[in-house]
């Protein structure tokens, strides 16, 4: 079972990240579970989501304490205590950041993508969840672009939203592949 924790700030889409990832992984044939951790529902406040992806049915319903991946939507959260706690020894941090932040994630395998720039350019807003989904897909190969697009189509009714989100997934996916 792969366990993914996504941390962000209210409004950046951590909850939708888990939802889209779970639907995409489901179309790959996995059992999935996406669970939000709602705090105070306010823009800017730290928010969190959990995704489980497994070849077998998932029974456990507690939160994720030892993630295989931590996806960070706002690099400012890297210095918040406990954000990376419990990360498995071979675990990976995928973070949205302008430049490498090697100090705050010392000793942890990490990958940095400037998703904010992509989101601002494509979307006009710092909503980076779908961009980070592309990075996750490139890094893990757990879910194909095709199935993430399917998840986006299911989630959004608006054709323009669908197009923009798919494009963000594709751009970070490709950018990330170059890095790996």
């Amino acid at each position: 079972m792969i366990e993914v924790k996504c941390v962000g700030r209210g409004g950046q889409g951590a909850v939708t990240f888990a939802q889209l990832l779970s639907v995409g992984a489901f179309y790959e044939g996995y059992y999935v579970q996406a669970m939000p951790m709602f705090g105070v529902e306010r823009r800017g406040a730290p928010s969190m989501s959990f995704t489980r992806i497994s070849k077998k049915p998932i029974l456990i319903r507690s939160q994720i304490y030892e993630p295989d991946y931590v996806v960070v939507l706002d690099s400012g959260l890297l210095c918040v205590k406990g954000m990376l706690s419990g990360l498995k020894q071979k675990g990976v941090v995928l973070a949205n950041a302008r430049k490498e932040q090697s100090i705050s994630v010392k000793g942890v395998k990490s990958c940095f993508i400037d998703a904010t720039s992509i989101a601002l350019k494509e979307f006009g807003k710092d909503i980076v969840n779908t961009a980070m989904l592309g990075a996750f897909a490139a890094y893990t190969k757990l879910v194909s672009l095709k199935n993430l697009y399917k998840a986006v189509d299911e989630r959004f009714r608006n054709e323009d939203m669908r197009k923009k989100n798919k494009r963000m997934i594709k751009l970070t996916y490709e950018k990330c592949l170059e890095k790996i």
Partner: peptide
């Protein structure tokens, strides 16, 4: 609430 109502699964 939340721990099931807001969970996505098959």
């Amino acid at each position: 609430g939340f721990s099931l109502s807001h969970v996505y699964e098959r």
